[in-house]
Design a protein around this nucleic acid. Structure first.
Length: 449
DNA sequence: TCTGGGGTCCTAGGACCC
DNA sequence: TCTGGGGTCCTAGGACCC
């Protein structure tokens, strides 16, 4: 049995914890660079504001209705997420952190145990989790409980829709499962996106219930092979996916990206190179926190995809390099990234965004590919060097330590600093309405009088 | 003027291995 | 006449998720 805990309007809810005056008012949170709406309160949804609406297109509407507008504050959301997940991890046997605001719970075998303790049902247990998360973190959630992950997602959606359910829906019988399937449009099923929804409705499949009745062969043919087959089976109540392992509640990623839209369009190579270097540094930091090394490095740069005449996908170029020796050393990754940028750079073009991806992640230690001539290119080591910490690891540890203690960016590569002079780096995005880091910076701590 | 930033999984084809 | 069988790795692309 699976539970799915999903925080309601997560980013808005995080902001409301520290600004209670935002309760009951329409509130939106904007993406990086204050580009589009990425989180909306119920009141904002009721005004017809959509996920992904570009800010400049809805500015008038926002003003007209007195909508509170906030820039995104990922430091805050990440920390609030950690608190929620930590509580869940202490409360149930297994947790898979699925995204910043969602977690799957392993509720297998709990029912018998619960019978003797609280209220006797998973429904009551889920209600208690919900109340505890709210009390401990201030974040409202809904909980779906069902025999498969896909059904738990579906139950969660219904719990969010219908306030009468009290934030919890447990699909504890076949009748209830069938009822729930009938309530949900096929396009709202987890795993059915725009393309599939279009295809399905064209074939007369309109609800989750309809989808649960198609043949496996049809699902395979129409919905991406085995993925589609599993999707249908899950709707029927047969689990096809277990709880992803994240024992300590932290996510272990298979790739790490850092990319940003620039604060303004850039045409100077040195500036874009500076941006790429700073993105590499950030990605490498995440990589080291995860305790891994990367084998594959990708750099991409994008021109304005909304420019008239831009063909879909044609606005972006990327270059990939498989490193001879996996590394997490910012200096080496930055040097390689600079070379990759040279391969895709077009003089005269105007770029609006860049990014780097670290992939082929592996833990250090045994099994590591060593350089044939010893060490990595950045810091040659003797051929006979025993397997041990990578060259430069100590330096990176000091770098991370300083930045953690004194704030991100305290020590950086000079190449990531931008042109001499003062002011924000030219690739820094807009964030006109950013709230303080209430929970992670001492200076930003709220003072209650 | 202005349009996010992360991720996942699967398929298919080609090159190459023994 | 006849032309194996079993793999891996890489790339590109497509779908999906929050």
């Amino acid at each position: 049995m699976f539970g799915l805990v999903d925080c309601n309007n997560f980013y808005v809810s995080c902001e409301r914890v520290f600004q209670p005056r935002l309760e009951g008012r329409p509130v939106v949170v904007l993406s990086n660079n204050d580009g589009c709406i990425i989180s909306r309160s119920q009141e904002a949804k009721a005004l017809g504001l959509k996920m992904g609406d570009p800010y400049f297109q809805v500015k008038g509407l926002l003003r007209q209705h007195g909508v509170a507008v906030l820039s995104s504050n990922y430091t805050l959301y990440g920390d609030m997420s950690r608190r929620v997940m930590h509580y869940l991890g202490q409360t149930v046997p297994g947790v898979e952190v699925y995204s910043i605001d969602e977690a799957f719970l392993d509720l297998g075998g709990l029912e018998a145990h619960l019978g003797r303790h609280i209220g006797g049902s998973l429904t009551a247990f889920a209600g208690r989790i919900r109340a505890d998360v709210k009390r401990r973190t201030g974040i409202p959630t809904c909980v779906g409980v069902a025999p498969t992950k896909t059904l738990a997602k579906l139950a969660n959606r219904l719990a969010k829709q219908d306030a009468a359910l009290g934030g919890v829906l447990h699909l504890d019988s076949d009748e209830r499962r069938r009822w729930a399937l009938g309530q949900v449009a096929v396009g709202d099923v987890w795993g059915v996106g725009r393309q599939y929804a279009q295809k399905l409705t064209a074939a007369g499949i309109d609800s989750a219930a309809d989808l649960s009745r198609v043949s496996e062969a049809w699902a395979r043919k129409q919905l991406g092979g085995v993925v589609g087959a599993r999707l249908v089976r899950e709707l029927q109540g047969y689990p096809c996916a277990g709880l992803g392992s994240s024992e300590d509640g932290s996510l272990r990623r298979q790739s790490l990206t850092c990319s940003r839209t620039f604060g303004r369009p850039l045409r100077e190579r040195a500036l874009v190179a500076g941006a790429v270097t700073s993105f590499v540094a950030r990605a490498a930091e995440k990589l080291r926190r995860q305790g891994e090394l990367a084998h594959v490095l990708t750099v991409f740069i994008s021109q304005n995809r909304f420019a008239p005449g831009a063909e879909p996908g044609g606005h972006s170029r990327s270059a990939v390099l498989t490193l001879p020796v996996p590394t997490s050393d910012t200096r080496e990754l930055a040097a390689r990234a600079g070379q990759l940028l040279g391969r895709i750079w077009e003089e005269g073009a105007v770029y609006v965004k860049a990014g780097v991806v670290l992939a082929g992640l592996e833990p250090p230690g045994r099994g590591q590919q060593l350089g044939l001539f010893g060490g990595g290119p950045a810091a040659p080591a003797p051929v006979a060097a025993p397997v041990g910490p990578a060259p430069g690891a100590a330096l990176m540890a000091v770098l991370d330590g300083l930045n953690e203690r004194f704030g991100r960016g305290t020590v950086q590569l000079a190449a990531a600093l931008g042109p001499a002079g003062s002011g924000p780096v030219p690739w820094q995005g807009q964030a006109a309405w950013r709230t303080p880091a209430y929970t992670t910076r001492l200076e930003d701590l709220l003072i209650v009088k």
